[in-house]
């Protein structure tokens, strides 16, 4: 219940990351997440993420968005995946994507409960990361800062979970 109160960009540090960070809620796989790209003739793109965690525990939850509104919480991710964090470094790929612009929100689900854990004031207390090395600044970075524009073939990026 308290989580909802941090619905805006608050002025002091208490809410700097805030629940706004993952305002779109869970990154559980959305319906239709794997429909994209099927049956088209456009050459397909692959987006590969190198994942670095500081603790081999739980899983890394990754949500891939193809538009600023969806990334901002007004839509669903085009893909989502759960990568067991069995090692400190892993890779995962999204294949069969249309060339275009994408951004990722991800968190390290240390306790394996499938949700981003927050403290009683709604602040995320599990590590999180964004594509393109974008960093939080009183909330998640903008879609533009986290965006990767990809063409046909493979593009690599790194998700580094710092703490």
């Amino acid at each position: 219940m308290v989580r909802k109160i941090f619905d805006r960009h608050l002025s002091k540090t208490i809410a700097i990351a805030g629940a706004v960070l993952f305002a779109s809620g869970s990154v559980a796989e959305p319906p239709g997440a794997f429909q994209n790209g099927a049956g088209t003739s456009t050459p397909m793109a692959t987006l590969t993420f190198n994942i670095e965690v500081i603790k081999a525990q739980g899983a890394v939850m990754i949500a891939l968005f193809d538009s600023a509104p969806a990334y901002g919480g007004k839509g669903q991710p085009v893909r989502a995946t759960r990568v067991p964090a069995e090692k400190l470094e892993m890779t995962t790929s999204f294949e069969g994507l249309k060339p275009g612009t994408y951004a990722v929100k991800a968190y390290h689900d240390l306790d394996g409960d499938g949700q981003l854990s927050v403290n009683p004031f709604g602040l995320p207390i599990e590590p999180f990361a964004f594509s393109n090395g974008a960093q939080a600044h009183y909330g998640p970075p903008s879609f533009d800062k986290a965006a990767l524009t990809i063409g046909a073939g493979e593009t690599q990026d790194t998700l580094r979970f710092a703490k």
């Binding site: 540090t13 700097i16 990351a17 939080a136």
Partner: peptide, 9 residues
């Protein structure tokens, strides 16, 4: 753009 991810930053 300063990296501010939580109060302890």
């Amino acid at each position: 753009g300063a990296p501010v991810t939580g109060p302890d930053d």
